[in-house]
């Protein structure tokens, strides 16, 4: 027992890459030339949110938890539905499709996740910013493949929401303590990523992004999810002016 844990501790400490620190981290950006006015009167398509909840094993490996994920997905949908009245735009829900059509939506959702993750890791996080992105305008895209989605739905903008949460497992927490005690290394337990982004479906360009890899709110509870959604939609340009005060 002892040996197993010691081995795990030593191995993992020697390999682990620390999560980016919270400081030096930007959390949101708007594309040049885009504003609430640009958005006014335009239809917004709400993509089915990507939700992933799991446990972080001792070594930091993510293990999905279907039940937590399902629960969080329900809370998220309920919360988005509840806040729908705060949007000044007409909001339409992703249609239920099969086959190639369904793939068009699911692949773009996955691409949004990759693009948002790139923005966070290579632009927002100052310590790891790509030289080609230094002092440059916010310019990211999903490509013109989104046009097909605009044609299919009549929406000009697409709103993507993604949450990924890893809760430290018992072993991970134990390991965290061990790591501090034995080698004095700080190891993070848990991971709480949230992205919300608005894409111009005619060009594929990301016009607004709010993204953070250290979000608050326990998505496994209703109140926690309300807090999370509040953080995700903070500064969203498409809210009715009154709605912000209500938050």
């Amino acid at each position: 027992m002892m040996n197993k844990w010691l081995a795990a501790a030593i191995l993992a400490v020697s390999f682990l890459v620390m999560a980016p620190m919270a400081h030096g981290q930007e959390k949101g950006a708007v594309r040049e030339g885009f504003s609430a006015e640009t958005l006014s009167g335009k239809k917004i398509l709400l993509f089915r949110p990507s939700v992933w909840v799991g446990e972080q094993s001792t070594g930091g490996l993510a293990e999905p938890n279907a039940d937590w994920t399902a629960q969080a997905r329900e809370f998220l949908n309920a919360e988005l539905a509840r806040r729908q009245i705060e949007f000044s735009n007409e909001l339409i829900i992703e249609p239920d499709l099969v086959g190639e059509d369904a793939k068009l939506f699911s692949e773009h959702r996955a691409l949004f996740n990759s693009v948002a993750s790139s923005v966070v890791n290579y632009q927002f996080f100052a310590g790891n910013r790509l030289p080609t992105r230094k002092n440059k305008a916010f310019d990211w895209t999903l490509g013109e493949g989104t046009k097909a989605i605009a044609e299919r739905t009549g929406a000009q903008y697409g709103l993507f929401v993604r949450t990924e949460d890893q809760y430290g497992s018992f072993g991970r927490k134990m390991f965290q303590v061990l790591a501090i005690g034995l080698v004095g290394a700080g190891v993070s337990s848990g991971k709480h990523v949230g992205y919300a982004g608005l894409v111009d479906l005619h060009t594929g360009n990301l016009v607004w992004l709010n993204a953070d890899e250290q979000m608050g709110g326990d998505v496994r509870t209703e109140e926690g999810m309300q807090k999370r959604v509040g953080q995700l939609l903070e500064d969203f340009p498409g809210f009715k002016p009154v709605a912000t005060a209500a938050k």
């Binding site: 134990m174 303590v177 061990l178 005690g181 034995l182």
Partner: peptide
Amino acid sequence: IGLAGAAAAPNTGL
């Protein structure tokens, strides 16, 4: 437990 353990001597983690 994690918190309690962190506050106590580290070796109690085992």
